[in-house]
Every structure is written in C-alpha cells, then in structure tokens.
C-alpha cells in the first residue's frame, strides 16, 4: 500500500537537484582536465615512465566506464518505466507497485521520464483507493515545468477525477469545465467526456447526462476501446435514474460485454445499484 509518506519520500528521492554542476559532472570534468593535462604534458603528475604510459589510459578507461554506466542506467530506467506501465495495462497492480517504487528510489532523469514514472505511481495509488496520495502526486506532476504536454494533459484529467473521488467538488467541477472548454485531441476529449459523465452521475444531474448520451456513446466507442465499457455503465446509471429502464438494461449489457461487472463496480461504486438490478453479460471464457 502506498501511503502519503511513502509517496513523498519517493518523489523526493527521484528528484534531480537542479544545480549548474552536479557531482557526476564535476568528476567527469575533473577526469577530462586530468586527461588533457596528461596528453599535453606526460610528466605533469609523475616522473615515472611507467606511470606516464599507463595513467592516460587509466583515466580514459574511467571516463568510458562512467559513460557506459550512465547509458546502462538510462536503459534500465526506460525498461522499468515500460515494465511498470505494462503491468498497469495488464492490471498486475502488485508488480506495478514493486517496479515503480524500486524505480523512484533513485534520481531519475530526464524530467519527462520522472513525470511518466510519477503518473504510474499515481495510477497505482488510485487503484488502491488512496485518492489523497494520488492527488498529491498529480499536483506535483503538474508543478513540473519541463514535463511533456501530453503528460500534463493526462495529469489534469486524472487530477480532476481524483478531486471528484476526494469530494472536492468545487475544484473538480471547475477543472472539468476548463478541460471541456479546451481544444483537445479526440482521444483525450473522450477521456474528458467520460470524466464529465462521471461528475454528472455523481452529482445526480441525470437529465444532462442522458441528453448527450448518443454522442457520448459514439465518442467512447471510437476512442476508448475497452474502457468505453465504463462509459456505457455510467450512461446506464443515468438512464436508470431517469426511469428509462430498457435503455439502462441495454447499456449495462454492453458495458458488461466489454468489462466484467465486478471490475466496473470496483472502479465506479456509483453503478452498484445498476449491477444489482440488470442482468450482466455472461463471459464464456
């Protein structure tokens, strides 16, 4: 379980100090100066012929090893980020938590890779229903000035969802309204619409949710792939509350054709009554 303290510690540990000369750069610079000095004047450090022959080679090997270890570390980081997101996609949350907490124990560069890693940590925390932890992480990502634009958009969408879960409705509504008004790529627009629908269902604004149902359904189908099932489930809840039970039953059937009912209810507890009321699709797999 990721607590707030753990998250804070991981965020602190993974941060790279923004100094003009890092410790590693200092050592590399020093080795470079020594190498240059040895090449320009072999007798600079020692009068021994043996040392004069071997020292430049030794310094060069040190530089090569340093560059090699840095490259290997970057590769390891990239592989771990990929593994963490792979585990998240496959909903292997234990593995995702293990990889991401290990990864964030050391400074991560470049900034966008750290932002991606923090997003993965936020996803794990959200799955554990640690919404305050997730909120704190996402707010940190949004404060990162050099993060990738796509990561920042994703962080905003995720934060708005987390605020809703944390019952910070005013902030959540204001954030969702801003996102709805923004010019976004269709895939992100579909995610924002899903979030907006969740807000409407959560706040009991069922008429508004039902009004744009067909457009929303088409948008979810086109861009959310399997996650469109969550959208159908929320639409089903909206139709159920507005008394259109046939439509609600049909949407619930579609929702549970894509995602198993238990998984939908686990993510959106608001549809629990719908799950109990309407028959779900049977999975013969």
């Amino acid at each position: 379980m990721i607590s707030l303290e753990t998250a804070r510690e991981l965020m602190e540990r993974s941060r790279t100090r923004a100094t003009w000369l890092s410790r590693q750069t200092f050592w590399l610079l020093l080795l470079g100066i020594v190498l240059g000095g040895l090449l320009a004047s072999p007798g600079w450090l020692s009068g021994s012929r043996f040392v004069q022959v071997l020292l430049p080679q030794f310094v060069l090997i040190c530089i090569i090893l340093w560059v090699y270890s840095r490259t290997q570390r970057q590769r390891r980081i990239a592989a771990m980020v990929s593994a963490a997101w792979g585990a998240i996609q496959l909903k292997d949350w234990t593995q995702a938590e293990a990889v991401i907490t290990k990864l964030l124990r050391r400074p991560i560069q470049p900034v966008f890779v750290r932002a991606q890693s923090l997003m993965a940590l936020a996803a794990v925390a959200e799955n554990q229903k640690q919404y305050d932890v997730s909120q704190h992480i996402l707010e940190t990502v949004l404060q990162e000035p050099n993060a990738d634009a796509s990561v920042l958009y994703a962080a905003r969408v995720a934060l708005a969802g987390t605020l809703l879960r944390n019952s910070q409705l005013t902030d959540a509504v204001s954030m969702i309204d801003k996102l709805v008004r923004m010019e976004l790529p269709p895939a992100l627009r579909a995610q924002v619409e899903l979030l907006n629908l969740f807000r409407l269902v959560l706040m009991g604004q069922t008429q508004e949710a039902v009004a744009g149902a067909e457009e929303r359904r088409a948008l979810f189908r086109r861009h959310l792939s399997t996650r469109a099932g969550y959208g159908y489930a929320l639409l089903s809840a909206a139709f159920d509350r507005s008394g259109q039970t046939d439509r609600a039953a049909e949407l619930w059937r579609d929702a549970t054709l894509l995602i198993r009912p238990a998984e939908i209810v686990d993510r959106f507890g608001e549809v629990r009554s719908v799950a109990a009321k309407y028959p779900s699709t049977e999975w013969p797999l």
């Binding site: 040895l38 090449l39 072999p42 007798g43 012929r49 004069q52 022959v53 430049p56 080679q57 060069l60």
Partner: peptide, 14 residues
Amino acid sequence: AFVLAGPMGAAALP
C-alpha cells in the same frame, strides 16, 4: 591518439 601519447616515442608524438 592514446598509443602515441605519453613518453613512448619521439617528442613530437604527443
């Protein structure tokens, strides 16, 4: 460059 460097040969080699 590194083989030629150092006191291995003539003074011009470095």
